[in-house]
């Protein structure tokens, strides 16, 4: 069975903007919050959260620039 055929995951992959990065961010959110709940405010959890938010905030303009280049 492929990952996108699993019971809950196939809804995630079928919906949304059909983008593996955003799908990963969506699926990675709950485990990351779980990590925070377990380890608390430690350097490792802070770094993970910063990386997550940078990936989200940075990917949007990256995708926009990439689309514009493809259109050009």
């Amino acid at each position: 069975m492929r990952v996108d055929e699993l019971p809950v995951l196939h809804h995630v992959f079928d919906s949304g903007p059909d983008d593996p990065v955003f799908d990963t961010l969506l699926l990675g959110g709950p485990p990351l919050i779980g990590v925070i709940a377990v380890v608390g405010r430690e350097p490792v959890s802070v770094v993970l959260v910063v990386l997550y938010l940078l990936a989200f905030a940075g990917y949007l303009p990256y995708k926009w620039v990439r689309n514009r280049r493809q259109e050009a």
Partner: peptide, 23 residues
Amino acid sequence: STVRTIWWIFLLFTFVSILVLWL
């Protein structure tokens, strides 16, 4: 499909918002 995509977006933004506020 529309309502499932709305929930998809809402879930992603919820996780992002939780992490922003925690940070």
